[in-house]
Structures are given as C-alpha cells and as structure tokens.
Computed example of a mutant assay.
Amino acid sequence: MNIKNKGQCQQTALITGAASGIGYQLACIFAVNNYNLVLVDRMEQKLLEIADNFQKEFSIFVKTIVKDLSIPTSPEEIFTELQQEAIKIDVLVNNAGFGIYGLFNETNLTTELEMIQVNLVCLTNLTKLFLKDMVKQGNGKVLNVSSAAAFQPGPFMAVYFATKAYILSFSQALASELEGSGVTVTVLCPGPTESAFHEKTGAAGTKQVKGNKMMGAAEVAKIGYSALMEGKTVIIPGLKNKILAEIVRFTPRNLVTKIVKNMQEIK
C-alpha cells in the first residue's frame, strides 16, 4: 500500500515496528525533518492511518509494508519490493522487537524462537541487505534499537536480554568496521520506556517497572535521532541508565545477575 507525492527526491528512512512506541515516534521525527518513509509493521490499519496523516501534514512520500518479521523470508521480501520500485534507503532503523517474561523452563519456545527471529536475525538480515548499497555509495545511516538490558544478563527475560546484548555488540563492531566509509551505525539503548511493551511481555508488575517513572517514547526517540544524526555509536537515554551501564562493567557478574533478578521479580 503506497502513498506517493512530489517529495520523492528527498532522503528515505525505513523504520521497522513503526506503528507504535519508539518506532512511531521516530517516524514522526523523520517526517518532521522532511524524510520520505518506508514504514514496516504487522498492523495494517494503523500503518495506513499513520501514512495518511503524514501525507496530509508533511507532504512526504510514504510507503507502508505490512510484514510479520518473525517469518524468515520477510527481510528479503522487503528488500526485493523496494528494489523493484527503485526506492533507495538512506537510513535504516531496525526498531522492531518484543520480549516475553517468565522462567525459561516455563515460557513458550515457539514465541522465544520468533523473538530471536525478530530481534536478532531479521535485524542482521536487513542490515546486511541495505548496508552494501550504503557502503558502495559512501553514504548512509543505521539505527539499531537495543536496550539498557544489553549490558547484563536478565533472569525472567533471559532470551530478550540476550538478544539485546547481541544488538549492542553487533552494532559496535559494525560501527568500527565502517569508520571512514561515510556510513555510520548507532545503537540506541533505552531503559524502561512508557509504552505497551511491559504489558505485552507480562513484565508490568516487576519491581523495575511497577510504580517507577519511565521516560516517554517520544523523548527516547528524540535522543536516538539526535545521536544518529551526530554519528554517535552508543546512546543510552537517561543519566540513571548511563550510570548503571557503567557500574555493571566493574561489578562481579554473579552479583549483577542477582541484582537484576531481584529487580525483575514481580512485586
């Protein structure tokens, strides 16, 4: 489903998980800054509403792609569709992701394998597909959305924390490889953020979330966008989250895991 107009000569940003939360807020910022958009999500009606609103308010080109990114063929299908329509991607935002709360021996394996596919495999695949052209052209930006969870193990959300650690490591390595190429990679590592994420994962009642003030998705997106434009590699929104990320580097791993386990328990 496409919405086309005169703005097609501008730069284009592709955003996964664009229908809500940080992804939606990032899409708003890119739209305000006159980027054309390719918005990817499973929620078709929501995507169409967003595209229609952006079209009316900002007069930009918007293409919506309805995909379930847990399906392994999705990244290649997205890339092929854009190639066929000669839509060049200047900024890739790998934002889509989800989590699940509970003891690993009790959680659903199918859901966790889908999480690995979305959070980790799809992100890697899309980056591989679009990065080659960016490097060839000597220009481009990639924003990978990780989490403050990336800096330590996460009992009760073991697979989710591990996928976010992968995104952090992967992004830092790519940023180093690409120095001097004209292409930058930025990884955004927000702490708990106001969104439907915690309810969906089942973690809304944990000590870390319940009753604590969280940063809004719009503020996180703004910080992430600024870091991306400045070519920073790692950005951790919020002073508390930055301090915690530094502290765990100098704290015994077993103690860090115990602390996180305590914070992850249901109140």
Rank of each mutant, 00 (worst) to 15 (best):
D41P: 07
A204L: 12
K46H: 09
K6W: 08
N125R: 13
A18T: 05
K63L: 00
T73C: 04
Q8V: 05
I223P: 00
L126T: 13
L255Q: 14
A158R: 01
K136H: 14
V142P: 15
E57K: 08
A13G: 05
V135K: 15
L82M: 10
P153N: 04
A158D: 02
N53L: 06
P252V: 09
E246L: 12
S74I: 08
Y35M: 09
G154W: 03
Q208C: 07
T206N: 10
E114V: 07
V121R: 14
G140V: 09
A13W: 06
G238D: 04
I22T: 01
A31Y: 10
L143F: 07
T16K: 01
F151S: 06
E106C: 01
F79T: 02
E81N: 12
Q45R: 15
K141A: 13
N95C: 10
L120Y: 13
Y35Q: 06
N139H: 14
T163K: 00
L244R: 10
V32E: 15
V209C: 12
K258C: 11
L131N: 15
G97R: 04
D41K: 04
A227R: 00
N5A: 13
V145N: 01
T64F: 00
K141N: 15
E219L: 00
S181L: 01
L14W: 05
R249N: 13
A13H: 11
M43A: 13
G191S: 03
V260A: 07
N125D: 14
H198S: 13
L188H: 00
A86F: 09
T233H: 04
S176T: 06
L131K: 13
L26T: 05
I78N: 04
I100Y: 06
K128I: 12
T233F: 05
G182M: 01
P153S: 07
F98Y: 13
G231T: 03
V91M: 09
K141Y: 10
K56D: 11
V220E: 01
E81V: 07
F58Q: 10
E194M: 03
M115L: 15
T233G: 04
Y160A: 02
K261W: 08
T201K: 05
T80N: 08
A96D: 07
N139V: 10
E246P: 02
V142C: 12
G17Q: 10
I235Q: 04
C9S: 14
I259C: 13
K164V: 05
E106Y: 02
K164G: 02
A204H: 14
K6N: 15
K242H: 08
L131D: 11
K210H: 12
S171M: 03
K267E: 15
V135Q: 15
I78W: 04
D52S: 14
Q10W: 06
L255R: 11
L109D: 10
K210G: 11
K67Y: 07
V209F: 13
E194T: 05
V40E: 00
G102P: 03
H198D: 08
F151W: 06
L14P: 09
N36Y: 11
I87F: 02
A19P: 08
F161G: 00
N241S: 13
T163D: 00
V135N: 07
G154F: 03
Q84A: 11
T186S: 01
V38H: 12
V183P: 01
I235A: 01
L126C: 10
Q137P: 07
F151E: 05
K258S: 15
N105H: 04
